[in-house]
Simulated assay, not measured.
Amino acid sequence: MKPSISIITIGVDDLERAFVFYRALFDIAEEQIGAGEDHVAFFFDDGFSFVLFPREQIAQTAGKDIAVAGTPGFVLSHQASSAAEVDEILRKVLAGGGAIVTEGTQSEWGYSAYFEDSEGNIWELMAQPPAN
């Protein structure tokens, strides 16, 4: 895997407060901001995204019961070229001493998986769905 960090997701305690802060900090057009019930995403011109996500949900993503000390406050995301590449990277994770948090799963957003490195840091692997 040649790491290509395409998304950084950080955990926040107050989504609205964090949105107000980062909206004021980033010089970004309204059409480059996407929001849902549980997240806000800032889409930058170079293909990089910065996402705000509730800390409790990051804990769940990381396989933790609750957001306690040691729960990651962020997730690094690598954009793979295909679902097969996601699965190949997961094999390397296991061979290198990491752990799979979530096996590869297909969703409306594409094919994704989560893994934990040898130090407990969480990565998301994702492959966009093929264009129709």
Rank of each mutant, 00 (worst) to 15 (best):
A67V: 03
E124F: 01
K64Y: 15
G110Y: 09
T9I: 14
S81A: 13
V101K: 12
A24G: 10
G34A: 12
E108T: 13
A113L: 08
I5M: 12
V12M: 02
F74Y: 14
E30L: 09
E85I: 06
P130H: 10
G110H: 06
T105M: 10
G34D: 14
D45G: 11
P54R: 03
D45R: 13
Q128Y: 05
E124T: 04
L25Y: 01
D87A: 13
S82C: 03
F44A: 11
E85D: 11
Y22T: 06
F43P: 00
Y111G: 06
W123I: 04
Q79I: 11
N121P: 01
V40I: 13
F74I: 08
D13G: 14
F26V: 05
E103W: 00
S118W: 05
S77K: 14
Q32P: 05
G97N: 03
E88R: 14
A24D: 15
A18W: 03
W109S: 12
M126E: 08
G98Y: 08
G70K: 01
I89V: 14
A83M: 02
V75N: 05
S81I: 10
A67G: 05
D117K: 08
L25P: 00
F53D: 06
P130M: 11
G104I: 14
S118A: 15
G34R: 10
R91I: 12
E88Q: 05
A83G: 05
A80P: 09
F74R: 10
I8E: 02
P54H: 05
I66P: 00
S82H: 03
D65T: 15
V75R: 08
L25K: 00
A69C: 06
P130W: 05
F21K: 06
V20S: 09
V68H: 02
G70A: 09
E16Q: 11
F44S: 09
I28H: 06
G97S: 00
P72D: 11
S112H: 09
L52G: 07
F53T: 04
E85R: 11
G73Q: 12
W123L: 10
R55A: 04
V68S: 15
A35F: 06
S6F: 12
Q57K: 15
A131Y: 01
E30G: 02
S6G: 15
R23H: 06
T102K: 14
Q57W: 02
D46N: 15
V75S: 04
D27V: 08
S81P: 00
R91H: 11
S107T: 13
G36V: 09
E124G: 07
G34C: 00
T102Y: 02
A35L: 08
A41D: 14
A80M: 12
S107P: 00
D27I: 01
I10E: 07
V86E: 06
G120H: 03
L76H: 04
D14E: 10
Q60H: 08
D87Q: 13
E103L: 05
R55E: 04
M1W: 03
Q79L: 11
I10D: 00
A99K: 14
D13N: 15
G47M: 08
G73R: 12
A35E: 15
A69N: 08
I100C: 09
I58V: 08
E108N: 12
D117Q: 02
S118E: 14
P130E: 14
Y111L: 05
V51Q: 06
G120F: 07
E103C: 02
I8G: 05
E16N: 10
I5Q: 01
E108P: 04
F115H: 10
A35K: 15
V86L: 02
F48L: 13
W123M: 02
M1P: 13
L94F: 03
R55L: 13
R23A: 07
